[in-house]
């Protein structure tokens, strides 16, 4: 069984590569039992969205307009 520390590493790596079958199974089982890691996993998805938004502001700038001026 993987512990939380290993699970967070795995969740992080999932942002760079596709996990193997056993990794996915282990991850799913752990997340089903562990609320903290479940939150962490959601946060990693959110973090990526935040970073994409940050980058998108660079290209688009429109969203940023209201952000800068409200």
């Amino acid at each position: 069984m993987r512990n939380c520390r290993e699970i967070t590493q795995l969740v992080s790596e999932a942002q760079e590569r596709e996990l193997g079958l056993s990794e996915r199974m282990g991850l799913r089982m752990h997340l089903a039992m562990c609320r903290a890691c479940r939150n962490f996993s959601q946060q990693m998805e959110t973090l990526r969205k935040i970073c994409r938004s940050y980058a998108r502001r660079d290209v688009d700038g429109r969203d940023d307009e209201s952000l800068e001026n409200d």
Binding site: A55, D60, G61, R62, E65, N69
Partner: peptide, 17 residues
């Protein structure tokens, strides 16, 4: 092509990136 200060700044970062 810029659209205000915010867009200017972010556009510059896009080019820099």
């Amino acid at each position: 092509s810029f659209n205000g200060r915010a867009a200017l700044k972010t556009w510059m970062f896009a080019i820099l990136k």
